[in-house]
Design a protein around this nucleic acid. Structure first.
Length: 417
RNA sequence: GCCGGGAUAGCCUAGCCCGGUAGGGCGCAGGCUUGCUAAGCCUGUGGGGAUUUUCCCCGCGUGGGUUCAAAUCCCACUCCCGGCGCCA
């Protein structure tokens, strides 16, 4: 969420931001709603002041004056009540729009409409030359009997799959390998609840705008994590941290759940499913360091692919492709031989103070007179299912799949045959 | 699930019984003073607004109610602590 005062005082900045994002947003409606809200609120405060003054006089006046005073107060009270109702409605109208206004792209983010305008920052690793036609991960998964698509569907419906034998072990190995790696680079491991309150989902910007993308429980205001980002960012919701604690760095493995309503790409295989595993990185930083920290966060996520020896590229997303809460995002895409293209396995974003304002995460100290909102960053490090798909394809031989050396202490086997 | 106790500002705590300006400590920020790794003293330190030193509104877990007036009394809910029950 953006600072309403910034919107009021610099509407041109917001207008430019929306234009860069190619978004139609009723900005004027928001500003008008806020103006009217403020106007009525002011009137309400004046009435309250009148009432408070009368009330304070009460103990000192005579009995007959008291009766008169009560009549006056009651009259003002009626006016207050109706103003309160009006103010409440106006605030709701303003907030409806305010909560749906996206973050402002950072100045270093290139202008663009979509994927084709994203910029490749670097390409790392050698793409392997195959002397046979590489198979798709789902073909490999079925032929080696490590991914069972049909039975996944039987258990939970379309969009779910089941891992079996060495497939299940490889998934677990990838999770542990990534957790250990990030822990060794200074991240604190967290194992959070897989459900989160509606407030938590609001804090990261997933509610109210992306309600349709999440699963929720039927009786409570609890939602299944679409990413551990929700849990990790909200660890410090409603807290005032000390400058000396920053930056905080967290890593968590969690399953992630996404309804993927109305999407029709990558449905074959395990690339786009309703449940997948992910190791997630989150940083909470002071404002002045957050963009440096983003670069380091991307490096931390890249390290996984470097060690697995899987070719990848890093893309700087253009304004049109930027997520709702993000000011700047890098995607990391790993090479998918069967489709002769790169596949997103990580998305690393600096959400600046957008989430901190919603989740109310501040800090004091560091020579600052007043408390200030922190910056929050998140990045996959990495999505496990997609990493597995990429790994299977890159490491396939005609009769087996080789396990990358770095994973062997975790898998306890060196090939899937 | 039942019974009891609790929730006060970034943190800790007083006030609640008996309704009338939320007091103190720590931390943080600023200032003053001092010839010694530091201490002492003063000021400020929840959110919002403004005609921005003065001023106004809101704020004591959340939402209602009683009252001229609620941190304080009443009701409901949430969460925490303890006891009982159930339980992987």
């Amino acid at each position: 969420m953006l600072d309403i005062n910034l919107i009021r005082k610099n509407p041109l900045i917001i207008e430019a931001s929306l234009k860069k994002r190619n978004l139609d947003f009723p900005l004027n409606e928001l500003i008008e709603a806020d103006n009217l809200y403020r106007k009525r609120l002011k009137e309400l405060e004046v009435k309250r002041h009148e009432k408070n003054e009368l009330t304070e006089k009460y103990p000192q006046v005579s009995q007959s004056e008291k009766e008169l005073l009560v009549l006056k107060v009651n009259e003002i009270e009626n006016q207050i009540k109706s103003l309160e109702e009006e103010v409440e409605k106006l605030k709701e109208k303003r907030d409806y729009l305010l909560f749906r206004l996206p973050n402002i792209p950072h100045e270093s983010v290139p202008y663009g409409k979509g994927d084709e305008d994203n910029i490749t920052v670097r390409e790392v690793g050698e793409k392997r030359e195959f002397n046979f036609k590489p198979k798709a991960h789902y073909e490999l998964g079925e032929s080696f009997d490590i991914i069972d698509f049909e039975r996944g569907v039987k258990l939970a419906g379309s969009g779910f799959y089941t891992l079996k034998g060495k497939g299940a072990a490889l998934e677990r190995a990838l999770i542990n390998f990534m957790l250990d790696l990030h822990k060794s680079r200074g991240y604190t491991e967290i194992f959070p609840p897989i459900l989160i309150t509606g407030k938590g989902a609001f804090g990261t910007g997933h509610l109210p705008k992306f309600e349709e993308d999440m699963y929720r429980t039927s009786k409570e205001d609890l939602w299944l994590l679409p990413t551990a980002e929700l849990a990790l960012v909200n660890l410090h919701a409603n807290e005032t941290l000390n400058y000396k604690q920053l930056p905080l760095k967290y890593v968590a493995y969690t399953p992630c759940f996404r309804r993927e309503a109305g999407r029709h790409v990558d449905l074959k295989g395990i690339l786009r499913v309703h449940q997948f595993n992910k190791v997630e990185l989150v940083k909470i930083t002071a404002p002045e360091t957050s963009f440096q920290e983003l670069e380091m966060l991307v490096n931390d996520a890249e390290e996984v692919l470097k060690l697995l020896k899987i070719p990848y590229r890093v893309r700087l997303l253009c304004t049109g492709d930027l997520g709702f809460a993000s000011a700047k995002t890098y995607d990391i895409e790993a090479w998918l031989p069967s489709q002769n293209r790169y596949l997103e396995v990580s998305s690393c974003s600096n959400c600046t103070d957008f989430q901190a304002r919603r989740a109310n995460i501040k800090f004091v100290g560091g020579g600052r007179k007043e408390s200030q909102y922190v910056h929050t960053l998140n990045g996959s490090g990495l999505a496990i299912g997609r990493t597995m798909a990429v790994l299977l394809e890159n490491y396939q031989e005609k009769d087996k799949i080789i396990i990358p050396e770095i994973l062997r202490p975790y898998t306890k086997f060196d090939a899937i045959e």
